[in-house]
Design a protein around this nucleic acid. Structure first.
Length: 477
RNA sequence: GGCCCGUUCGUCUAGUGGUUAGGACUCCAGGUUUUCAUCCUGGCAACAGGAGUUCGAUUCUCCUACGGGCUACCA
């Protein structure tokens, strides 16, 4: 096939976009981008009971957030009844499908019977060859009917999956399945074929749970005399229990990752690694890298277990590499007023210092707070360890005096200043460094002390040191 | 039950008819650092089982086990 690929993502709006769906969308999108093809979107809302508008909205906003842009228009199956009706009539006219007057109850009875007798249940072909007159009779009697495909009883249906290879199923394994329900609405297997053809889809990339549906769909393609597209089935994404990832696993919804502060590029990078590899030992990719390196032939057959630890690591790596200006943009996208009162240049320097210590935007924001507000809480363990008694106050006092006189506020000068102080007081530098950090940040760890002091500036540094002098040590001795 | 699919360290994976079966995450131990993080070094850890083909199978074939999917008037 030489034409440029046309692929689609076709979620049903019966739940939020979850990790598995996101990956299916991503792989479709990457495939399209890689080959310069088209990526379309179709909402499979033929199940009126379970389909909800809010889920459609959620899926669309998640896809937008992920940046998986599609070509308009979005196809809604619920608006295409006419097209399905025509296709079904075509099949009926050509005697490739038939009206089946079996009721649910009759079917249920037969099913039970087979079960009791230990036989495999097969849908009875009672009405397969009913004469036109007899059909009219049933219709006039007000009997409701479904439309079933006449599945050939002989032969087999074959396709070559781009990932799973050759798959062949005997036709006698396949029942005369329903393509139109008794209420006139079309079923999934039918709409998929009609729409994929109608939308010009030439490569179907979807979850492995659809492998068993594929022969049925191919049978419909043949009955309708339509060209059969290529198929590529993606392995499932699993939870730690090796079961298909679902709401039960908590972390399923894409929104969850957004709320956690994961960056899109990191999430996409991680998701892509679930079931695909580049053929090299590289694991960190930008979105552009993914587009250029993506190869559907390198997709795994086996289901992949979602591992939050690795996601977190990938996110951390992306964070380190990301320019501060982009990080701030990402933060503000979600939190437009974040640190609006501070100068951008100051924020950039803070981010530069702190990004190495955070994996998600939320972690980063949290870690940066003391650059913008004086600490309110101080790490109690650190107080106990680093500020045991009044002797520390003397050190700090001395340090403050020297700082006040300092004319240059550079890291090197601050370094010299602190070491001079400790030397004069005949203690190790560490005796001063740790309480100073505690006073300035409230924490026992963080960036290099002189970077911290330099960035905070003279006023803030002195203010925080003096405040600490007031409140530490916690109890007199 | 029937049909289809799958099975390399805990996890993501590379790989070959002959390899010390490689990398990454996690975890552990060191090193660097004023602390934390980063970074560096090292370590633990895998070919589901059984037959067959073969001089030789993790690799090819079959069987079993286990896992997953489909078997709906869900998608």
């Amino acid at each position: 096939m030489n034409k440029s690929p046309c692929v689609r993502f076709a979620p049903s709006p019966t739940g939020k976009l979850h990790l598995g769906g996101a990956r299916t969308a991503l792989f479709n999108w990457l495939y399209a981008k890689h080959y310069g093809g088209d990526f379309l979107l179709r909402i499979e809302d033929t199940d009126t009971e379970r389909s909800k508008r809010k889920y459609t909205d959620q899926i669309l906003s998640s896809l937008k957030w992920l940046g998986l842009n599609w070509s308009e228009p979005i196809i809604f199956q619920s608006e295409r009844n006419l097209i399905y009706k025509e296709a079904a009539q075509n099949l009926l006219d050509n005697k490739l499908a038939y009206r089946c007057f079996l009721t649910k109850e009759e079917l249920e009875f037969e099913r039970e019977k087979s079960k009791k007798e230990g036989l495999d249940f097969r849908v009875p072909k009672t009405y397969r060859n009913l004469s036109l007159d007899d059909q009219k009779g049933m219709l006039n009697a007000g009997k409701s009917f479904t439309i079933r495909l006449k599945v050939p009883s002989k032969g087999s249906t074959f396709f070559e999956d781009k990932i799973y290879g050759e798959i062949n199923v005997n036709n006698h394994e396949i029942d005369d399945f329903i393509i139109v329900r008794s209420d006139g609405s079309p079923t999934y297997n039918f709409t998929v074929v009609v729409d994929d053809n109608n939308m010009g889809i030439n490569c179907v990339i979807r979850g492995e749970d659809h492998i068993s549906n594929t022969p049925k769909q191919i049978l419909i393609y043949s009955a309708l005399h339509l060209p059969v597209p290529d198929f590529a089935h993606l392995p499932m994404i699993l939870g730690a229990d090796k079961k298909r990832l679902s709401k039960r696993h908590g972390a399923a919804g894409v929104e969850h990752f957004k709320n956690q502060g994961y960056s899109v590029d990191a999430l996409l990078n991680y998701i892509a690694m679930l079931g695909w590899n580049s053929g090299t030992e590289d694991e960190l990719f930008s979105i552009e890298d993914l587009i250029s390196k993506f190869d559907i032939n390198k997709v795994q057959k086996k289901g992949a277990v979602y591992d939050e630890k690795k996601l977190h690591w990938v996110a951390g790596q992306h964070m380190i590499q990301k320019p501060e200006i982009n990080i701030l943009d990402e933060i503000r996208e979600d939190d437009p007023d974040w640190q609006k009162h501070s100068k951008d240049n100051y924020i950039y320097r803070v981010l530069q210092l702190m990004k190495i210590r955070a994996s998600t935007l939320n972690e980063l924001k949290e870690a940066c707070t003391y650059f913008f507000t004086d600490p309110k809480d101080y790490d109690h363990k650190a107080i106990a360890k680093r500020w045991k008694d009044k002797s520390v106050n003397k050190l700090i006092n001395n340090f403050i005096k020297r700082l006040e006189m300092l004319s240059s506020w550079s890291q090197t000068d601050l370094d010299i200043c602190l070491r001079d102080t400790s030397q004069e007081m005949a203690v190790s530098a560490a005796k001063l460094i740790h309480p100073v950090r505690l006073a300035l940040s409230g924490k026992s760890h963080g960036p290099g002390l002189f970077e911290l002091i330099e960035l905070l500036g003279k006023m803030t540094t002195l203010r925080r040191l003096r405040k600490a002098l007031d409140i530490f040590p916690l109890k007199d001795d």
